[in-house]
Every structure is written in C-alpha cells, then in structure tokens.
C-alpha cells in the first residue's frame, strides 16, 4: 500500500506512527484521489474527523482527514496544505455524508469554503460578522475588551502580594523591637 501511494501520489511523506496508525502528507490536488483510493481499494470506509491547523507564519492551513478501517483496525491521517488567503477546497460530502457537518464547522470557525457543500450556514454561532474566531489573527482578548464590559473590582480589593509584603515587614519590625527591648532589659538587669 505504501509503495503504491508513494509512486502514484508522488510523496515521500508516508510515516508509520505506530502499528496501525499511518500519516501521509500529500499535495492538495492529489488528496481526493487518494481518499477515493483508500476508501474503495483499502476499505477505509469511515471518515472520523476533519481538523484544521492554522499555520499563520507559513501562510497556510493544514487540513487533516482521519480515516479508519474496522476490518484491520487501522487509522490513516491524510494531511494537506491549502493557502490561507484563498481558503478554498472541495467538499467531501458526496463521498462521506458526515463530512457535511464537519465542513460546516470548519467553514464557521476558519472561513474555509468547501465547494460542493450544499449547506455552510452557521452551526453554533449566530449572526457572526467578525473574523472567524479560530483563525489566529482573531485576537480574542482585544475583541472582548472592545465588545464586552467587565465588572469592576471590589472597593476593598487589595493587591495581595503587596499587602502580604507590607504585613511581613510590620511583623519583622515588631519582632526586632521586642528583641531589642529584651536585650536592653537584660543589660539593665546585669547592671
């Protein structure tokens, strides 16, 4: 299987992670042929999940398709890179029905367009007009500071670190004063 993948899909990036867990990195245009081949010839009938990793420095998204065969209990991870600006790929929903909702989720969270997916409406967000929230250029804290109000702290709220430092200094001073008084008393007694 591996030699066939290497020859047909022109990739050296086939990795055996452990027994029954393989990973391959392929070019985007060859991905779907590979998926069809794995499904039809090697019994990878289950698409477990589609995940996306945002490599903002390199300027691309890494899409990972995880497929399983129950016949031999093997898992295949197929990784491909797509450009970040375009964020455009083909849908897998004609091969696997479950891909429809996975792609809908990725479209919502990363803004990736899946050509051929019939419903890419928002899944868990509602009326979201800002940057897709899981893209790394989306600054969550800045968004929260701009859009939401925080509760002010209590009036008697104190910086615990500074306060404990101050209390410790007072205690130390008291201790030293007591020590000095004791010593002076001793000296008086001796005299």
């Amino acid at each position: 299987m591996f030699s066939e993948i290497k020859n047909r899909f022109a990739t050296d990036d086939v990795e055996v992670k452990r027994k029954g867990l393989y990973k391959v990195v392929v070019k985007h245009e060859r991905l779907f042929a590979l998926i069809v081949m794995l499904k039809e010839m090697y019994d990878y009938k289950t698409l477990n999940t589609i995940t996306c990793t945002d490599w903002i420095e390199e300027g691309h998204f890494a899409l990972t398709y995880i497929m399983t065969t129950l016949k031999r209990n093997e898992t295949f991870m197929l990784q491909t890179m797509i450009l970040r600006e375009e964020a455009h790929t083909k849908s897998l929903s004609y091969l696997f029905k479950q891909a429809q909702i996975m792609e809908r989720d990725l479209h919502e969270m990363y803004g990736i367009k899946f050509e051929g997916n019939e419903n890419l409406k928002e899944l868990s967000l509602e009326n979201w007009v800002h940057t897709p929230p899981l893209r790394r250029e989306f600054d969550t804290l800045e968004f929260v500071n701009n859009h939401l109000t925080f509760r002010d702290g209590r009036d008697d709220n104190i910086d615990t670190k500074a306060e404990s430092k101050r209390l410790r200094a007072i205690k130390k001073a008291e201790k030293e004063a007591a020590k000095k008084a004791k010593e002076s008393k001793k000296a008086e007694d001796v005299q």
Binding site: L125, P133, F138, T140, L141, F143, V144, H147, L148, T149, F150, R151
Partner: peptide, 19 residues
C-alpha cells in the same frame, strides 16, 4: 454570571448578566 468566571476572555460569553 457574576464576572465571566473562567470564560472571562471568551469571545462568545457575556460577562455581567445584570447588564
């Protein structure tokens, strides 16, 4: 509901219910 709790920096969770 008081101040956002552990979701204090979440983009999708309100921080003060009484607003």
């Amino acid at each position: 509901t008081v101040n956002g709790g552990m979701y204090w920096d979440s983009y999708n969770t309100i921080k003060k219910l009484e607003d």
